Amino acid sequence: MGEDLEAAAREELERACTLAWRDLAAHTPWGDIFEGFTPAGREVAFERSYLWEDGAGGDIRVEVVVYPPQAYEAGVRLTRVIKRSG
């Protein structure tokens, strides 16, 4: 179960990081939650957030959490930083 959630979180994090800093800066901070499926077909919630790492105008922290409905604490959280310098 955990491996499936982690695989879904890795895929979502890759998608979340396809935009460049310049494209994201105008919309940060921002977040969204939507329902979807893991690679194994399990129904889950995806939470994606773009937050300033150390302050507005700096690096952007991307957070992705994938969890079973009504079980946020059982989810997988991954983060990555998009550097302002590119």
Rank of each mutant, 00 (worst) to 15 (best):
Val44Trp: 05
Gly75Asn: 02
Val81Trp: 08
Glu35Pro: 06
Trp21Pro: 05
Val65Thr: 07
Ile33Tyr: 00
Val62Lys: 01
Gly75Gln: 03
Val44Phe: 01
Glu43His: 13
Glu73Thr: 10
Val44Asp: 11
Glu53Asp: 11
Glu12Pro: 06
Ala74Lys: 15
Asp32Thr: 12
Asp23Cys: 05
Gly55Val: 01
Tyr67Ser: 09
Glu63Tyr: 00
Glu11Cys: 07
Asp59His: 13
Gly57Pro: 04
Lys83Ala: 15
Ile82Ala: 07
Ala8Pro: 05
Gly75Thr: 05
Thr38Ser: 08
Glu6Gly: 02
Glu43Lys: 15
Arg10Pro: 03
Asp23Leu: 14
Pro69Met: 06
Asp23Gln: 15
Leu51Arg: 13
Arg61Asp: 09
Ser49Met: 12
Ile33Ala: 03
Gly41Thr: 10
Ser49Pro: 00
Thr18Val: 09
Arg42Val: 00
Ala45Ile: 07
Thr28Pro: 06
Thr79Cys: 13
Tyr72Val: 14
Arg84Cys: 04
Thr18Ser: 07
Thr38Gln: 06
Tyr67Thr: 09
Ala16Leu: 01
Arg48Val: 15
Arg77Cys: 13
Val44Ile: 06
Phe37His: 11
Trp52Ala: 01
Pro39Cys: 06
Glu3Asn: 12
Ala45Gly: 08
Gly55Ile: 05
Glu63Thr: 10
Ser85Trp: 13
Gly86Ile: 07
Arg61Met: 12
Glu3Leu: 08
Pro39Ala: 10
Arg42Pro: 00
Val81Thr: 15
Pro68Leu: 11
Glu73Pro: 02
Ala7Gln: 13
His27Tyr: 13
Gly2Leu: 15
Glu63Asp: 02
Glu53Lys: 07
Val62Asp: 08
Arg84Thr: 05
Arg10His: 10
Gly86Leu: 06
Gly41His: 09
Arg15Glu: 13
Glu73Met: 10
Glu11Phe: 04
Glu43Arg: 13
Gly31Gln: 10
